[in-house]
């Protein structure tokens, strides 16, 4: 396919789809190798990155998505009401941070890090679909195992979990829990 047309097609797909579009999805309509599609996407991104354009391409949750330029927000807010569910509380952010870095994780582990009971916060995060229950841990009580969701990546505009800000490495001794963690690696890439 003619690269110019391919680029136009990419733009059209990004415009139509309301979720981040993955390279593989673009590959289904654009008969070009993925590297070339990625290159065209970068070009498109660069072309949009111009003062006279109101849209930008954002990398989030393993895909690409078109959104408005952040600095236009104050003007757009005049015209559009966005019923966002509001900002997360600091308790929710703390809990979410712990889950994001330590997943898979169970409630008592979160609580021991925060030093506070977390059931309400977890309910709230589940309701907002920022975390999910992926199973139960074998053993007494068979507690729920929590992980973050693709919605979490979208909410914070993260391409994937590896793009989370680095966790300042604490000076404490490594526990076995951490080793388990390290062997687990990228938990989900969607």
């Amino acid at each position: 396919m003619d690269p110019i047309k391919a680029k136009a097609l990419i733009e059209a797909v990004l415009f139509l789809h309301e979720e981040p579009v993955k390279l593989s999805q673009l590959g289904r309509v654009i008969p070009l190798p993925p590297e070339q599609i990625a290159k065209l996407l970068e070009e498109l991104k660069a072309e949009l990155n111009c003062p006279a354009r109101g849209l930008r391409i954002f990398e989030r949750a393993g895909g690409y998505q078109v959104g408005t330029r952040p600095d236009l927000a104050p003007y757009l807010e005049e015209l559009f009401a966005d019923d966002t569910t509001g900002k997360l509380s600091s308790a929710a952010l703390e809990t979410l941070a712990i889950i994001a870095y330590r997943q898979p994780i169970i409630r008592v582990e979160i609580e021991s890090i925060r030093g506070v009971k977390c059931d309400h916060v977890l309910d709230n995060l589940l309701r907002r679909k920022l975390i999910r229950i992926t199973g139960r841990k074998p053993g007494p009580g068979r507690p729920f195992i929590y992980r973050t969701t693709p919605e979490f990546l979208k909410y914070f505009g993260l391409p994937d979990l590896s793009s989370l800000p680095p966790l300042e490495s604490p000076t404490y001794n490594k526990t076995e829990k951490e080793e388990v963690q390290n062997s687990e690696e990228p938990v989900e890439r969607i």
Partner: peptide
Amino acid sequence: EEYRSFKAVAEQLKAKEADQQKIFLR
């Protein structure tokens, strides 16, 4: 100390949240 490191990250997530809320999606 462990708690502090997560608290620091939570702050960064908060900033990201604020950035994201400035982007309107279709």
